[in-house]
Structures are given as structure tokens and as C-alpha cells.
Write a protein that binds this DNA or RNA. Sequence first.
DNA 1: GGGCGTTATATTTTTTATAATATAACGGTA
DNA 2: TACCGTTATATTATAAAAAATATAACGCCC
Lengths: 119, 119
Amino acid sequence: MHELFAENQAFRANGRLWIEGPADRFLGIGRLELLEQIQATGSISKAAKAMGMSYKKAWDLVSSMNSQARQPLVGAQVGGAHGGGAALTPAGAQAVAEFQAMQERFAQFLADETARLYQ
Amino acid sequence: MHELFAENQAFRANGRLWIEGPADRFLGIGRLELLEQIQATGSISKAAKAMGMSYKKAWDLVSSMNSQARQPLVGAQVGGAHGGGAALTPAGAQAVAEFQAMQERFAQFLADETARLYQ
DNA sequence: GGGCGTTATATTTTTTATAATATAACGGTA
DNA sequence: TACCGTTATATTATAAAAAATATAACGCCC
């Protein structure tokens, strides 16, 4: 396929990967990063800010994940010491770990396909 | 991961795959289908109609592909017998065949990942 | 030569997605 | 008790994407 575009190897295979349920997307790269940020910051609002995302959008994503999973991925407390906060549940931590692994396998797939473009 | 969502196996891995150049997307599933329709119908406008896509969008996509590839993927004639038409060049036919194969490998990857969700 | 269907292109409108703003409630803490 | 930062939610405004509309040119064919 390399004859088609350029000799400078500037073309590459890329893509997006996600897990979807019967009604909606369940987990993708954006939701994964949101979960990671919640894990790191302890709050949905801080996670949203870190990602340059509106709080509403972050909350909607969390709500979508929590309602689709058998057990919520994110637990939240409203009020209290510092206003409240959020954290990953064990199920959330497991989802993060497993989807990270899935992403790594996908990255390898993409690297293989990019290499094949030039072989 | 199956403990996370449901016992009815309604969740699955899904995704999108494309080839991108330095500036823009080069070839994805939508562009592939457009090329296939051009191949089948002999015209950009008929291909667009078959896909429920505006002619302008189809033309923009063809233009993007033709300008990125070393050789155009689609050749077009304006005026003439039936107003003109378009057809795949040999490079276009090759791009279709190779990206179809890439898509098939991706479908297998997604099937493997879906199976892994429940193993 | 006039009509036809197509390519090629620009402009406008509509739709969709995203962001911004607003408000209430909550529960520690000073 | 008043305050604070957060969750939770709705509404409005903005931006981006897509679709619709318009127009010119082209070259065979009747």
C-alpha cells in the first residue's frame, strides 16, 4: 500500500476502541481517562477540570457508566469535609485495569497495521 | 470483566479504524464505502445518493483522498455521454482491497476482544 | 444548438454536539 | 449557624458538523 501515498512513512493506522452495551456506549478512551482522573483527584469536578471538560459532561458520563454496570464504577459523596468527592469502586478500578489492557492490545494492533502499510 | 455488566452477553468490543496522513484522515470505513459505491455506480452523485450522503460531502471526501494519495484514487469525467461520471483508478481499486483486508483483521480483533470480555 | 446529467464549487440553512450558566441540596468545619 | 466545595440537575447559549440550496461549466446526443 506504500506505493499509494508517500515514501516518508507519514501515514499510519489509527482508530478508536470501546465497549458498548445494548443501549449506549459503556467505556471508551475518554471515559477511561475520566475514571483515571477521578482516581487521581478524588472528585468529578476536579477530574473534569483536568480534562478541560465541563462538569455536566463528566457527570453525564459517570451516570451513564454507573447505570449500565451491575455495580457502580464511581461512588460519590455530597457535602462534608471538602464539599464531597468521588472515588472509584472496586468494580471501577477493575474496569480501568481491564480496559487499559484492552487499549494496549489495540495499540499493538495499530502498530502492526502501520508496519504492514510499508512492508 | 463479565462480572461488571451483565450475564446476558449484551456487551461487546467495538471500534473504528482508519489510515491517517500528516494533515488529515486518508481512508476510513465511510470513505471505503464511498469508493465501493463509486465502483458500483460509476458516479460520485449516485454513490452519494446510495449512501444517503450529500453530493458535496462525497465530493469533499473524494477530493481529500485524491489530494493525499500520490496518485488519485478516483478519476472523474465532466460532461459527455451521460453527463460524466467517476471510476476507481487502479490505485483506488488497490486501496479498496487493502483496506477491506485491514477491516477484516480488525473485525477479528474485535471478536477476540468481545470473547475475552466473557472468558 | 439545446437539453441532459454530471462534476465542481460556494453559500446558506439546519441539525447536532458541546459548553456555559444557574440553582438547589448536602454535610463537615470554623 | 454560616460557609465552603462538591454533587446533582436543568436551562440557555455557543460552536461545530452536516445538510440543503444554488450556480457554472462541461461534453455527448438528439
